[in-house]
Amino acid sequence: MDKTVRGPAYVVGDSVDTDQIIPAEHLVYSMTEPDERRLYGCYAMSAVPPAGQGLPTGNTPFADCDADREGLPSRFKVIVAGGNFGCGSSREHAPFAISEAGCRVVVAESFARIFFRNAVDGGFLVPIESPQRLIDRIRTGDDVEVDVDSATLTNHTTEETFLLKPLGEVAEIVRAGSVFEYARQKGLIPS
């Protein structure tokens, strides 16, 4: 996992659930076949209600597979969300879809626990909590940079820097890359 991620921010509100992140009808695709796997990125965040798609203006789709962006469905690199991001189902397809779209960091006031563990254990993206509500301070499209080690978010558009919450014990899994690598390092499974 990269230690810093920089790019356009995508801002959403509170309680964005897994059905909004990747609607259930798409869960039938293979997560390994390249052609099908790509579809997860294309439909990532597609069921967020239009008014909430990319705050504050809304109506900004997160991903667009028709646009040519060197193969990445989304131009956004960091999702900035309110509370309870990823609530709902246990589908690992949710952090997977966001990561397939090309976005590797989500900063939220709080996460639903299964989404959080899936993001970390699968090594799909880094979920970082923010002690303050950033969705009023950052606009979709702002050029932001997240430093995972120092737990900071810098908004280069407004030249503001915000302190995020340290990852705590899961930092070891994030650093290892996935729970499997972590388990190997700890000798729980043979390497």
Partner: peptide, 20 residues
């Protein structure tokens, strides 16, 4: 409790899960 596929795959191979 519910988990994602990665955690489930780890259990499938080891019978173990980390929990807080």
């Amino acid at each position: 409790t519910g988990v994602g596929n990665t955690d489930a795959a780890l259990i499938m191979g080891t019978g173990k899960l980390w929990v807080r």
